[in-house]
Computed example of a mutant assay.
Amino acid sequence: MSLDTRLNALSDALLDPKLLRGKGLGNEIGFYIFDYAPEREPDVVKALPRVVQAVEAAGVRVGVIDLYQTVLGMLEERGYLDKALALEQTRGAAALHGALKPLLSPDKVATAVARQAQGAELVLLTQVGAAYPLLRSHSILNNLHERLDQVPVVMLFPGTYDGQQLRLFGLFKDDNYYRAFRLLPEPNQGVHA
């Protein structure tokens, strides 16, 4: 199934009553990964407003949470954004990552995401790739379990997910993560449609 076909089917998949109950098969948490080729990110970004509009027109409150903007907001709120940008420019990305690690712990980011998700019946996490390497996908999902266990969460993921392993951009292997279902997987590649 091509990405265009999957994007056209996405609003219907998000409106599936099983997904909206927030629980997967066997009563697992309702976390889903919509993975796609990283070079198709502009197509996903362009389609997202149409998808959200269709889901909201069906009466479901959608929380679209941009992880990159969440990180920037957290830094700005604490007065560190300009310092972080200067640090990256003078000392590089590795120094920036080390300096921001305590401020952007997965627990703190998950708390910020949960705060933004209040009132939502469905949460879409976007801009995962833009937030890398400051955020790791599996860490955010692991920390969201206790905060959003009754709300279905769909991570729009520029890379691959095979039901066990996340590979951001198809390159960077994240730790194993097996609690999410692939949403609209391509034939012969997924567990759950």
Rank of each mutant, 00 (worst) to 15 (best):
D43H: 11
P49E: 12
G30S: 06
I33W: 02
L75W: 11
L75I: 11
G24K: 04
D12V: 02
P42T: 03
I29H: 07
L10S: 00
Q118D: 11
G163L: 01
Q127N: 15
Q127G: 00
K18S: 12
Q89T: 12
R21W: 01
D149A: 06
Y161N: 06
L48H: 04
Y36K: 04
R136M: 03
R147I: 00
V109D: 07
A86N: 07
I29P: 00
A57H: 06
Q150V: 06
T70Q: 10
L25V: 14
R40N: 15
L14P: 10
I140W: 07
L7Q: 00
G73E: 12
A93R: 14
R78A: 15
L134Q: 03
I65K: 01
L141D: 09
V51T: 14
A84F: 08
P185L: 06
L135N: 03
K108M: 07
A130Y: 03
G163E: 05
V52D: 10
P152K: 06
A130W: 01
L81S: 09
N142Q: 14
V123M: 08
R147L: 11
S2G: 12
L10T: 00
G190A: 13
P17K: 12
P152S: 09
E88R: 14
I29S: 04
E28K: 10
Y161I: 03
P187N: 11
T160E: 13
R6G: 08
Y132P: 05
L148P: 07
P152W: 05
L100P: 07
H145L: 14
Q150K: 14
D35S: 15
A54W: 04
G30H: 05
G30F: 02
M1P: 10
G59H: 10
S11Y: 04
Q118K: 15
M74E: 14
L141W: 09
I65E: 02
D12M: 02
A110E: 05
D149Q: 08
D16Q: 09
Y177I: 09
L81Y: 15
G59L: 06
A93E: 09
S137W: 07
R21N: 11
P102A: 12
I65A: 00
R50P: 00
Q116E: 14
A180T: 06
V123R: 08
A86F: 01
R21P: 00
T70Y: 06
E88H: 07
K108S: 15
T126R: 02
E41R: 11
T160F: 07
S2C: 01
P102N: 13
V62C: 08
Q69P: 00
P38M: 09
Y32V: 01
L72F: 02
G190W: 10
